[in-house]
């Protein structure tokens, strides 16, 4: 569900070693395939930098799905009705599934699941900064569906045409399942705004105020500060730039906010007739980098929860494997 800022995090410079004639030939053939709109499959030859970029992007996307279950999981036991609880459970289960599709896609590139989890747990790999904010009220759950999933969908739809086919296939599946996530969030807010008490309406507005700017940050740094975007676009790993996606998201969200009857917390947000788009205020990039760098409100807690779950589950993983081996030996003996 949630990608962002994939160009954020440790970058690998393109290899500067001298290439052999054969390698250059292969690279030229690869570039030609990309230019022709061909899909690249797992066993096809690809430049090392293409592989590394994809592993980083897909694994960070997978981590985001998994870590993204934590802020929402926080409200499962406190959902206001059985209906809302069932919906939230289904959504969180979807996120787990999306994480698994993506880990599988990344594994086709020759990186093991354990290596990727290691990178997450050691803090080497990033996940979407949005999950380092707390879910303080029930309205946060609706707003996450509406804005956070909305931003994620905006980001992910173009990835269904990613040049790396296993990733594109995973994204098609994810996008198909995800539209319910945004709709259920918006609908739950609609109920609160139309039938709720003044306190409940205020709660929705407060949640929107807290999530609006972090949601805009989900698209990653501005294009001018996103040096790897260009290469990713050339390779068809990325199809639309961060700023273009952010603009699309703002333009799509403004009318939805009006119908909801809430205000987006940006005094500079207004329609620009000449551009045919909305203008909006400056994003606090210092906050973005602080959160990406590990110093957001919930970074330590989120990572701590993941590491604890992994460590607490170790005996189960080992026992299941030991059982499987024992059964296999028994079968062989019989």
């Amino acid at each position: 569900m949630y990608t962002q800022a994939m160009s954020v995090g440790p970058q690998d410079a393109p290899s500067s070693k001298i290439k052999s004639a054969e390698e250059m030939q292969r690279e030229a053939a690869f570039e030609a395939r990309i230019d022709a709109g061909d899909f690249i499959e797992a066993k096809d030859w690809m430049p090392e930098h293409y592989r590394k970029t994809l592993v980083r992007q897909i694994s960070q996307h997978a981590h985001s799905e998994i870590v993204g279950m934590l802020p929402e999981g926080n409200w499962i036991t406190r959902a206001p009705t059985l209906k809302r609880k069932a919906i939230l459970l289904a959504k969180v289960q979807d996120e787990a599934g999306h994480g698994l599709y993506l880990y599988s896609a990344a594994e086709t590139l020759g990186t093991s699941r354990d290596q990727m989890l290691d990178a997450l747990h050691s803090g080497k790999a990033k996940y979407s900064s949005i999950f380092n904010y707390p879910t303080l009220t029930w309205a946060d759950i609706g707003v996450i569906g509406w804005l956070v999933d909305g931003a994620a969908i905006m980001n992910q739809v173009p990835l269904c045409r990613c040049s790396y086919a296993p990733y594109a296939r995973a994204m098609i599946r994810v996008c198909r399942e995800e539209s319910f996530h945004q709709r259920q969030g918006y609908e739950s807010l609609l109920v609160m705004m139309q039938e709720g008490t003044p306190e409940q309406k205020a709660m929705v507005q407060d949640a929107v105020n807290r999530w609006w700017w972090p949601a805009l940050m989900m698209f990653g740094p501005a294009d001018k500060d996103s040096p790897n975007s260009e290469q990713s676009i050339r390779w068809g790993i990325k199809r639309v730039t961060n700023d273009q996606l952010r603009q699309r998201f703002v333009d799509a969200t403004v009318p939805q906010a009006e119908i909801l009857g809430i205000t987006l917390p940006d005094p500079d947000l207004k329609w620009n007739e000449a551009r045919g788009e909305h203008d909006f205020g400056a994003i606090d990039w210092a906050e973005f980098w602080r959160v990406v760098g590990g110093d957001g409100p919930m970074n330590r807690e989120r990572l701590g929860a993941r590491v604890k779950a992994w460590e607490d589950g170790a005996w189960v993983r080992e026992a299941a494997l030991a059982h499987a081996r024992k059964q296999a030996t028994k079968e062989q003996a019989a």
Partner: peptide, 23 residues
């Protein structure tokens, strides 16, 4: 439709059901 990790065949089937046929 995809892949997954599982300790044995029975678990793989069960997880495939959860991961790939939720709808």
């Amino acid at each position: 439709c995809g892949s997954l990790h599982a300790a044995d065949a029975k678990m793989a089937l069960q997880m495939a059901r959860d991961v790939y046929t939720r709808r």
